[in-house]
Design a binder for these strands. Structure first.
Lengths: 148, 148
DNA sequence: TATTGTTATACTCTATAACTATA
DNA sequence: TATAGTTATAGAGTATAACAATA
C-alpha cells in the first residue's frame, strides 16, 4: 500500500493513529462516567449495573456475563446496591438456586438521572460533530463493535 | 431540526445513539486493555503508567495529572511497579522535594510489547474499516477529544 | 505559606477457593 | 455431577488526612 518512495507517513500509521484515538477516547469516556458516578457516590461498575438493569431485569449470573466479572464480585456489588435501596433481590420462582435482580423506584430514577448527566457531560464533545458526521461515526463504531 | 411530521426517529436520537456507541466502544476497549494488562499481571492503571512513561519521563505529580489520580495513589502505584523492576525513582536534582520516575529496560520492553498486543487485539475491530474510513473516524474522534 | 511526596487508614473492586442448596 | 449464589480471604486501586521536607 505504501510505495518505497512514499512521501507520506509509513504504512501502519493510520491504524496506529486510529487505535490511539480510540484508546484516548475510551479513557475520556471512562473518566466522565466515573466522575458522574462518584457524584452520586457510585463506582463506575455500580453505575453500569444500574444501566444494565434499566434495560433488562435478570439473574445474578446475567450481570456477571454482561459485566465480565466473577459471580462472587456480583454478590458484593449487589449487596452494597441493595443496602442502598437501589435494587432488590428476588428468588427465581422456577429455579430454586437462582436469584433475580431488579431496580427499585429509586434505582430507576438514579439510572435515568445518570444517563441524562452522561449525555450532558459529553455534549461538548458530541456537539462538535455535524448530524451527518455523528451518524457516520455511530455507524462505523457499530460496525467495529459488531466485529469483535 | 425534526419537523413535527417527521417519519424518522425523533430529535435527539442521533445524539443518544452516538453516545451509546461511544460508551459501549469504551467498555470494549477497556476490557481489551485490562485483559492484556492482566496477562502480564498488571492492572489497567499500571499499563497506563507504562504507556505514559514510555512517551515522557516525569515527576510523580505529572503522573497524577495525566492519570487524574491523587498523589497518594501514585505513590502506591509506583511502589509496586518499582518493586517489580519496571521503573525507577530518582530524586529531582533541581527541586529537593521532587521525585522523577522513568522506565527501566524491562519496563520499556513491557510497554512496547503491551502496545503491540493492544494493536493486535483490536485488529479484528479496526480492520473492518477501509483506510479512508479509519482516517475519517480518527479525525472526528480527535476533534471530539480536542473539544472537552 | 505552599508544594511534593509518603504513610496510615478505610472502603470498594476483584478473583480464588470452599461452601450450601438446587437441578 | 453440574450450576447458582454466598462467604471468607487476600491483594490492588482509590481518596482523605496527617505528616516531613523543601521552596
Amino acid at each position: 500500500m505504501d510505495s518505497p518512495d512514499s512521501l507520506g507517513p509509513p504504512a501502519g500509521v493510520d491504524q496506529s493513529e486510529l487505535i490511539d484515538a480510540m484508546v484516548r477516547t475510551s479513557f475520556v469516556i471512562t473518566a466522565v462516567l466515573s466522575k458522574i458516578a462518584a457524584e452520586h457516590e457510585l463506582s463506575l461498575t455500580q453505575l453500569r449495573v444500574l444501566a444494565i438493569l434499566r434495560d433488562r431485569q435478570g439473574a445474578m449470573s446475567d450481570l456477571a456475563t454482561h459485566l465480565g466479572l466473577d459471580k462472587s464480585t456480583i454478590s458484593g456489588l449487589v449487596d452494597r446496591a441493595e443496602k442502598r435501596g437501589l435494587l432488590q433481590r428476588t428468588p427465581n420462582p422456577s429455579d430454586g438456586r437462582g436469584v433475580d435482580v431488579a431496580l427499585t423506584e429509586e434505582g430507576i430514577e438514579l439510572a435515568e438521572l445518570g444517563g441524562a448527566e452522561v449525555a450532558q457531560a459529553l455534549l461538548p464533545m458530541t456537539s462538535t460533530l455535524t448530524l451527518p458526521e455523528a451518524r457516520r461515526v455511530t455507524i462505523l463504531l457499530e460496525r467495529m463493535l459488531g466485529a469483535r
